[in-house]
Design a protein around this nucleic acid. Structure first.
Lengths: 192, 192
DNA sequence: CCGTTAAAGTATCCGCTGGATGCTTATGTT
DNA sequence: AACATAAGCATCCAGCGGATACTTTAACGG
């Protein structure tokens, strides 16, 4: 006697018992839900509902909730890196970075919320982050030789980018436009 | 027939049914728990347990979990402001601010996590934050007249402070010491 | 071509959370 | 002394992440 038939026949039976591409579908749904409601709010159950699957099925593809969020972040970092490879100047890099962050605020909040310790145990995420940093190295540190100095310079860039975007997004920098923010941060990063 | 006697007599009866200073006791306990476990982990139940009270009793003093966290943040901002009034120079302000943030990382994370929109509806919190900003104005904007320019200058200071502390705390700036971080951020704030 | 098997689903249970309701008790005021 | 009210309490609820045990199906080796 099939155990689930009662409910299974109540709803229109799914085309395939095996979803087939649940992992990527869940990733897409999670990305959308994070974008609209923020990663703190995201629940596995709503992701599962969105793709029409029992919530526990997600555990076949993601170790836990954090792993799902890590995967969303990884994908986002990869997209950002793809944008930044086309940057040519410091101003351009800053503009592209800021525009991505502001166009995808909730996603950016997720990306920057991943604890650094976590990344060490998540090579794909670490690699995606590294691609973004590598582009900053290329743009901002062309004529710096010492690796330590290069790293230092990049960190200064990220301090202003991250701080500026955070304060802007928090609504503390209420008056300036996105354009003004880019100009401001470009100026701060110019003199270093 | 007293309804709760069974359980009440099982435990040693509390000295007073009225706790007396539950609000401040809960605040203290919450502050300690936030400091040790982070504000994301904080549950009303463990706060209630820590002060020996039913979890629902906290709602007599705080509207909800967020209100409790806001109260913790307000108290922390007030303490920080009290430290900063003694600052004399930009370097001193930076050093005191950074030292507070790093000595109370989880608390600082809570403070900076309060959404700006929330503050507008929470005058005590807003006032506490304003005290901190006022000290920055005093130290960094002595010879700036235009209010808009003063605000702009303060924001630049906070961009570097917040960005620097965030990246340092996240472990991204792995090599420098607290002292080196202060020096770095002081230098970044010097030229503006 | 058919069985076996492992991957990918499902149902159900657990402990925990924040929050709502309604009760009781103690205190301060009149 | 009576009483209104503030501040406790037990209890219930839905939703969460996660664990276990079950079933279905696709893929593959004989």
């Amino acid at each position: 006697m099939p155990l689930y038939e009662g409910d299974m026949t109540a709803k229109p039976r799914r085309a395939t018992y095996r979803h087939g591409n649940l992992k990527s579908a869940a990733l897409k749904a999670a990305t959308r839900l994070v974008a609209t409601s923020g990663h703190e709010q995201l629940s596995l159950r709503e992701v599962a509902d969105a793709v029409g699957v029992a919530h526990r099925s997600l555990y076949n593809h993601f170790a836990d909730r954090e792993a799902l969020l890590d995967a969303v972040a990884t994908e986002a970092y990869t997209r950002l890196a793809a944008i930044l490879v086309k940057a040519e100047t410091p101003e351009d890099y800053t503009a592209k970075y800021v525009r991505f962050a502001l166009a995808n605020r909730a996603l950016y909040a997720l990306m920057t919320s991943r604890p650094h310790a976590t990344m060490k145990h998540n090579p794909p995420l670490q690699a995606a982050v590294h691609k973004v940093i590598a582009q900053a190295m290329r743009i901002f540190c062309q004529d710096i030789e010492s690796p330590a100095e290069r790293r230092r310079a990049v960190m200064k860039v990220y301090i202003t980018l991250y701080g500026g975007i955070s304060l802007y997004t928090a609504g503390v920098l209420d008056q300036p436009s996105e354009k003004a923010l880019i100009a401001e941060l470009s100026a701060m990063n110019a003199g270093m």
